[in-house]
Design a protein around this nucleic acid. Sequence first.
RNA 1: GGGCCAGUAGCUCAGCUGGAUAGAGCACCUCCCUUCUAAGGAGGCGGUCCUAGGUUCGAAUCCUAGCUGGCUCACCA
Length: 634
Amino acid sequence: MNLENHLTSIVKEILTKHYATEIGEKMIQFEKTSKDFAGDITLVVFPLVKIAKKSPVQVGEEIGAILKNEVDLIADFNIVHGFLNLVIANSYWVNKLNEIAIQADYGSSLDKGSRLMVEYSSPNTNKPLHLGHLRNNFLGHSVSRILEANGHTVVKTQIVNDRGIHICKSMLAWERFGEGETPESTKLKGDKFVGKYYVKFDKVLKLETASVIANWEKGNFDESSAFEAEYTKFAEAMAAKEDEKSKKGLADKIKKLANNATPIMRDVKEMLLKWENKDPQVYALWEKMNAWVYAGFADTYKAMQVSFDKLYYESNTYITGKQMVEDGLKKGIFFQKEDGSVWIDLTADGLDEKLVLRGDGTAVYVTQDIGTAQQRMQDYPDLNGIVYTVGNEQDYHFKVLFLILEKLGYEWAKNCHHLSYGMVDLRNDKGEVGKMKSREGTVVDADDLVNEVVLTAKEMTEERGHIEGLSANEKEKLYHLIGLGGLKYYLLKVDPAKRMTFNPEESVELNGNTGPFIQYVHARICSLLRKAGELDKAPIQENVFLHDVEREILKKLVEYPVIVESAGKEYSPALIANYVFDLGKTFNSFWQSVSVFKEEDLELQRMRLELSRNVARVIKSAMYLLGIDVPERM
RNA sequence: GGGCCAGUAGCUCAGCUGGAUAGAGCACCUCCCUUCUAAGGAGGCGGUCCUAGGUUCGAAUCCUAGCUGGCUCACCA
């Protein structure tokens, strides 16, 4: 039982007896003692003032005296305003250290949880991974480990977005403009190679769109008569508007219309249709280009040190989705419009009507998501829920998806959770903050960034010169461990729900609230333990003297399992990151002010080594939950 | 326009199930390596917690209204 619960029941009993009236648990509020005052835990006396009918200070004095007298655990107390600060006996903390020291997986829950699936990454196979994917991958990977630490069995997965109009775009561009070149012939990484053709398609599309609009403006609708009526409507509305915002909105609508009227768009739609009909030529092209992309992704995932247990492919699950939509249509859950498109009406739930199948019968995004969920449940019958690590621009999408699954009658729909995270903004040289835009070339490529942080780690480490004696191979591993650890920590320390600003200099920083700072604490402790040699495993005597900073460290160690639990409940690696930084900082303060080997009292020396050893264990464990390795020297 | 999210130090962020004088890191300024790794430590400077009301013994935290920024409401994914 933790200290707070333990004290709550004791205090409740004593006060009920003393004041001869029932004291509710809600009236007994504990909180951490402010570091400006002596004490380990603080009772807020305000709620008790009414019952005792005395001033807060008097009530505090009274209760403090009773507790000190009757409870061994409480060594001393002091009152500041309405706060009763309690000093817990040293022996309590020392015994806690002895308990922690013999627990194998300290911090992990002993309860058997359920089986969960965590989806993350889920890239499109038409362009390389970028900074946004890094946040996604690190989050998903870390949350998987945090859930495991909470007793769950986790299946790490992704849905590979390997089909759809966007994939056909790079295929068409390569077929038309590629002249047979390959990743091998160009020495480009496969994902980068395919991404190049996606960009090429976009360029051609823009040119064609511009020419379509130019024709329309001249009243020339030869090949796009179907668009004439709609265009005229928008154009007239635009001429009537005065303000820039409305004008721009209408201009965008015209652009979208013109997009769809371009020859290249018509061709790519035809290609998608062919693909869904398994046209052999289109299918072979698709397989070839996807293979290039997967080879590229594999390298990136390896460098990022993330992994998956099971992969799902949209190209496979969208069929299940389509079948489910057809079944749902028969059951009356969906309805069909005149043009053959299929919809679901969610207006009764405060949402809109939502398309689930296009007029030409092809699947949309949500169609395959429905199928994917169903397939996962079939593959893992004991699966209790799915966690989707996807950016917050899709909040609405997941509301819709979960609601559709519920309406289709799936019980497990209510256990699905959208782990929504904010986008990563960039800060440019001028200090302006903005989104990544591929058009402006401000997309931060995942491979480039990983290479850069590793290189910085190498330079910094060589400068320090702490690692003489390591082999070249060991050194390379260390640079990777430090660089990547720094990057992961940088992206994980922020609350997932919040959008964050990416600052290139800060992401490779080694001082302050950073991954390497924490890794360094671990390396220092390892150095200390190497010098100490074999430790005596006997429990520490409970009457040893404790410095304030040592008590602080012990309090933090005791807190660790609570942090792991709330990180699991909130799907938040940031809680772990902040905790472990705080632990490291406190330990550094101890390191600086308290010597281990100069201490003449051997029991004290033993306690300090044991304390240090367990700090290192918790750091290693917490960093593992973040997906970060810690070195023994750096 | 409807819905969702956010606004805390010069910058990046904690704190938000109401509690003490609102905390870290970076940046800037002082000190501390003959001592277990200075990728460190000790201290200083720095705040209308977006604004205005309200609830409360007590509000950065809860409620209401407004302001600012973002996302979303596609036969895109």
